[in-house]
Write a protein that binds this DNA or RNA. Structure first.
Length: 403
RNA sequence: CGGGGUAUAGCGCAGUUGGUAGCGCGCGUCGUUCGGGACGACGAGGUCCCGGGUUCGAGUCCCGGUACCCCGACCA
């Protein structure tokens, strides 16, 4: 990609209203644009990162036997009245009306829709277990949006729902999801701790949140340094670890994912039943597993930056390498070699921009590998990683091997 | 929804006692620069958030709205 064609714009000054580091950097580096409170456009740079995160999540869900599909955003009131959540869900629903004055909600989550679907398609224990997921826009009528992409009113979310004959089978799959989630955060380059949590208005029996330690976190967790136990302060009121009795540390964290054992609360209310081996009707046992993609993107920035800008972890970076040209004739040849080898390169081909500005922008954007071609580099290329200062002169062929 | 703030050029801001709007960045043209956000000259760019009111005159004072941000409660 030629940088002269890339739709982006960097600024020296952070936006006036930005408080969190991810909000500042994502705006300054030209990744996002605010449309209204809690509503953001993902510009091409951010969209590239978003797609990488989506691919990782999709890969992990598929490995865990999830089947991807897509449910509607518009959800009829009638369905939500079956669970009683039309009026009680918090944050409240975004409600709209069709031309016949029928009320519809913009989906904040899909327990109702999927339970309706599954009760029609599943009738026997032979149809279970079942794992379905989607990656789709969610709408939440929050009282207040905060911190740029950290809490918004419209966002992309992966939600997987699992259906089982009994609690034991749910427990088994819940642990598979737990590991899949840990793998997602690891691949996205952030350290997440899973903590015991309260289930909020989703409800259910047990839930765990995945917390990324960060100054700007809205949550506080209690962490045991000795045995690794962690819990949200919403439920852990004690000062001493319930597992090993060591002292608990309080830490600020961002909730980057949440998984729930729903049990039979939805299936009972909505009559989602299956016949067991003896021909008896039983409520389907359910679990749900959610992760917000935009929040994860911002969380990565919160966890990985320096005074100059963002430092993207390799697997989610918008480009593999940032080729900076201080000599276009030579750089063009390097660019052709790299793209010919299938490497995704952002090539700063601009001729009317100073070297200093190119470097400053490169640091701000945060692509992990920086390549420079100039009259000083001879027939080689200077390579430098975003997260350290060491530079090295190597041949284009060696770069292809390294990347 | 309760409390606190802000609103002036694309962005960040200044604007004195009420006298008809300016700075920095960015943008355009030209020239000089060219390895850490270069410099000069010229230039374009305004519903001073909206609606009323006071006044000879309102960015500025008064009243009423709206939007956005922060703290609280809730969430991925």
């Amino acid at each position: 990609m030629l940088q002269s064609n890339l739709f982006y714009k960097t600024t020296k000054q952070p936006p006036k209203d930005a408080e969190t580091i991810s909000h500042k950097l994502l705006v300054q580096a030209g990744f996002i644009d605010q449309l209204a409170a809690g509503i953001y456009t993902l510009l091409p740079l951010a969209f590239r990162v978003y797609k990488k995160i989506e691919d990782i999540i999709r890969d992990e869900m598929n490995k865990a036997s999830g089947q991807e599909f897509s449910m509607p955003t518009l959800q009829p009131k009638k369905l939500w009245q079956e669970t009683g959540r039309w009026n009680t869900i918090d944050p409240p629903l975004f409600i709209t009306k069709d031309r016949h004055k029928k009320e519809l909600a913009l989906g904040p989550t899909h327990e109702e829709v999927i339970t309706k679907l599954v009760r029609e398609h599943v009738s026997s224990y032979k149809n279970l277990p079942l794992y379905l997921y989607q990656i789709q826009n969610k709408f939440r009528n929050e009282m207040r949006s905060t911190g740029g992409l950290l809490r918004v009113r419209e966002f992309m979310m992966k939600d997987l729902y699992s259906f089982h004959t009994d609690e034991k089978d749910l427990d088994k799959y819940y642990n598979i999801m737990l590991r899949a989630y840990q793998s997602i955060y690891k691949r996205c380059g952030v350290k997440a701790v899973n903590v015991e949590a309260s289930s909020g208005s989703i409800g259910g029996e047990e839930s765990q949140e995945f917390m990324v330690l960060a100054e700007n976190g809205e949550d506080t967790i209690k962490l045991c340094q000795k045995c690794g136990y962690a819990g949200n302060i919403e439920i852990v009121k004690v000062k001493i670890c319930p597992k090993c009795r060591a002292k608990l540390d309080k830490k600020k964290a961002i909730e980057a994912g949440h998984i729930f054992k729903l049990g039979t609360m939805y299936s009972e209310k909505m009559k989602a039943l299956y016949k067991d081996i003896n021909g008896n009707n039983k409520p389907i046992v359910m679990g749900c597993y959610g992760i917000g993609l935009g929040r994860l993107l911002a969380t990565i920035v919160e966890a990985s930056n320096d005074e100059k800008g963002i430092i993207w972890p390799k697997e989610v970076a918008p480009f593999q390498a940032h080729l900076i040209s201080l000599d276009n004739k030579k750089a063009q040849a390097v660019y052709s070699k790299l793209t010919g080898a299938g490497i995704d390169v952002l090539y700063d081909d601009r001729e009317d921009v100073s070297a200093g500005q190119k470097f400053a922008e490169a640091d701000l954007i945060g692509i992990p590998t920086r390549l420079v071609v100039s009259d000083k580099t001879g027939d080689r290329v200077e390579i430098k990683n975003r997260d350290n200062k060491k530079t090295e002169l190597i041949s284009p062929e060696e770069i292809i091997k390294k990347l």
